[in-house]
Write a protein that binds this DNA or RNA. Structure first.
Length: 632
DNA sequence: AAAAAAG
């Protein structure tokens, strides 16, 4: 179900405010950030140690008090008058410790900025405006316009309708122009001001809805404001300020690439860390990348040692780095969990817990047996705002879904028929990409081999392949060299592959969530797509949820599927989607069915008269309240 | 049962 687009973005700023006092009461941390007054900023630290700011030093991000480094000189359409907090005047561009003193880990400052590889390549128009129109992006913005958005929580900051309304900083604004983002998508309109206000947020939105930018912009902007933060500099330990976790290596890589674009020439350094090769051999870039060229796919320790502001990682590798004390999370102020519910599904919870425990965040609220995502939210987020964004194209039906009854033994020939038909209709030079999902890694290899030997250029991606093979396969698919990709669920979530015209569920998943994610690989960025599913007697448990889903999205449901669905027992469990269908999830606090922990304050608003800021309540047409959640 | 993620 759509709930699994869930992402949690925890902006730790507000929480740090909460624990500030307790730190003052004796819980001395060796690595408190230190305020550097403007007149001392270019001095080496040893010469004149800056005074330590008291407990509220980390609240700086919270609102106007942080001052604006971008007061003037902005371009008229993106500029913002700023808060003009006169005296503060953190001079933009002032960097400390250009390599020598090590005030923070962003060594190099302006120097490095100039050396930075331009991720926008030849297309870069140097962020000049006017020359860019939205048709260049290939994004069908109209498809975004009527997406319903639902927010709940205390004092939800109002949405913004333009990037110009938000004071993100000139360097970031320039990158937004380079990306040709004309106006914020719905999730961005809501999530950015929430995050900028220092509030915790749980957002459920489809990948491809601009979600990555939604959590990256506030992080980058916030870090740019906090350059005066001193980070300890151990010989080998780095202290990132933001952490973004993702469930698969490819997704981390994709997020890293995007974050890199957004932070170009901001002085904010983004590094990605994931498994697939021994990190000691990764000297700045993986060996295969040296062979193939291109951007470094994964970091080496040396690269990491040069400092990092935003660390993008898969949980396994990060735990490894933590155990080796190469990374410390004591300075983390922003945490984003991409595909949060998926990571929990996949059994990452112990690792995530271990990771989060190392951060300077408030102690977790203890819960008994509660819903997984609620537990996550309660432990990691504080008085958060819940944001649910409807599917892109939820009303325009950008994905045409078909189900066909295909016996197990007929699947291959049936797939062949589909591919042949596709070949004939596509007279274009470049064939639309076809993504074929299977259940097992073995099955993926077998099908790929069979396709290949039958004249269809195919490749495969799954967890038994080396990271080198995985990335090669993805590149080959994206480039159209092998326009058929056979994949396991490793590719089901989050991956943004343009031009996927057809998703085939060769083997249906056992979970309707996974189905929704898989078909979401097509119909992206407002484009239309086709999704074909092979259904047979092995998929009986999926009949009902599939039929319901298709009905909700105005698809033609074959009569035979409806019959299977009506025969199937009403499942209350895993396959059951929570009601409504328009949104990616729901706010658990509304259920009122969980036992609250001792610290009721975390849920300020649950019982308070201020309510959730949505007059009329949740059931305002967006689905029945109190439905069982698939997150159970 | 299978998928993912540390080696």
């Amino acid at each position: 179900m759509r709930t699994s687009w869930a992402d949690s973005v925890g902006n730790s700023a507000s929480e740090n405010a909460a624990i500030g006092s307790s730190n003052n009461n004796g819980l001395a941390r060796p690595s408190r950030p230190t305020y550097v007054p403007p007149h001392l900023r270019n001095k080496p630290p040893s010469a004149d140690p800056p005074p330590t700011l008291p407990s509220n030093d980390r609240v700086a991000y919270n609102g106007p008090a942080s001052g604006s480094r971008w007061g003037g000189g902005s371009r008229p359409d993106f500029g913002h008058q700023g808060y003009s907090s006169g005296g503060a005047g953190y001079g933009s561009g002032v960097r400390n410790g250009g390599g020598g003193g090590g005030w923070n880990n962003r060594s190099g400052g302006w120097d490095r900025r100039e050396r930075e590889v331009n991720p926008f390549g030849a297309d870069d128009d140097d962020a000049e405006q006017g020359s860019t129109e939205q048709e260049n992006t290939g994004i069908n913005f109209d498809a975004y316009e009527d997406i319903p958005v639902d927010t709940s929580g205390d004092n939800v900051p109002p949405q913004v309708n333009t990037f110009a309304e938000i004071d993100l900083g000139e360097a970031l604004n320039a990158n937004i122009r380079r990306c040709k983002y004309v106006k914020p998508t719905p999730v961005q309109r809501h999530a950015i001001p929430i995050s900028i206000a220092g509030r915790d947020l749980m957002a459920c939105a489809q990948t491809g809805s601009g979600k990555t930018a939604a959590f990256c912009f506030p992080i980058i902007s916030g870090i740019m404001r906090e350059e005066y933060l001193q980070r300890p500099r151990g010989a080998r330990t780095v202290y990132p300020l933001a952490l973004i976790l993702a469930p698969t290596r490819e997704l981390s890589s994709q997020i890293h690439d995007e974050a890199k674009k957004f932070s170009y020439q901001t002085g904010v350094k983004v590094v990605v860390a994931y498994g697939g090769a021994p990190i000691n051999q990764q000297d700045g870039r993986a060996t295969f990348e040296l062979v193939l060229g291109g951007q470094p796919a994964t970091l080496g320790l040396r690269e990491l040692e040069r400092g990092v502001d935003i660390l993008v990682a898969t949980p396994g590798r990060l735990v490894d780095l933590l155990e080796r004390a190469r990374v410390s999370l004591q300075m983390i102020r922003y945490l984003a969990l991409d595909e949060a519910d998926r990571m929990l599904d996949m059994g990452f919870e112990p690792q995530i817990r271990k990771i989060v425990e190392q951060m300077d965040m408030p102690p977790p609220v203890r819960f008994g047996k509660t819903k997984l995502l609620l537990r996550l939210a309660s432990d990691f987020l504080s008085n958060y705002i819940f944001l649910a964004v409807g599917r892109v194209g939820s009303s325009t039906d950008l994905i045409v879904q078909r189900v066909e009854f295909v016996h197990e033994t007929d699947k291959r020939s049936h797939l062949m028929d589909l591919l042949h038909a596709q070949r004939e209709t596509e007279t274009r030079v470049k064939q639309a990409l076809t993504l074929v999902f299977v259940e097992t890694k073995k099955g993926a290899d077998a099908l790929e081999h069979w396709l290949y030997s039958n004249g269809f250029p195919a490749t495969t991606i799954h967890g038994d392949r080396t990271q080198q093979e995985r990335e090669m396969a993805l590149r080959s698919f994206k480039s159209g060299k092998t326009p058929i990709l056979v994949a396991t669920d490793v590719a089901a979530r989050g991956l943004d592959i343009p031009h996927v015209g057809h998703v085939v569920n060769f083997d249906l998943p056992n979970d309707i969530d996974d189905y929704v994610h898989r078909i979401g690989r097509t119909g992206r960025a407002g484009k239309t797509g086709l999704a074909t599913a092979f259904f047979n007697e092995n998929n009986l448990s999926m009949a009902r949820p599939l039929a319901e889903l298709m009905q909700e999205s105005n698809q033609e449901v074959p009569a035979w599927l409806t019959r299977y669905a009506s025969r199937a027992p009403v499942s209350g469990g895993k396959n059951r989607r929570s009601g409504g269908g328009r949104f990616g999830g729901r706010d658990y606090r509304r259920d009122g069915s969980f036992s609250r922990g001792p610290s009721t304050d975390y849920y300020g608003g649950v019982n308070s008269s201020s309510g959730y800021g949505v007059p009329g309540g949740y059931s305002g047409g967006y689905g029945p309240a109190g439905v069982t959640s698939a997150w159970d």
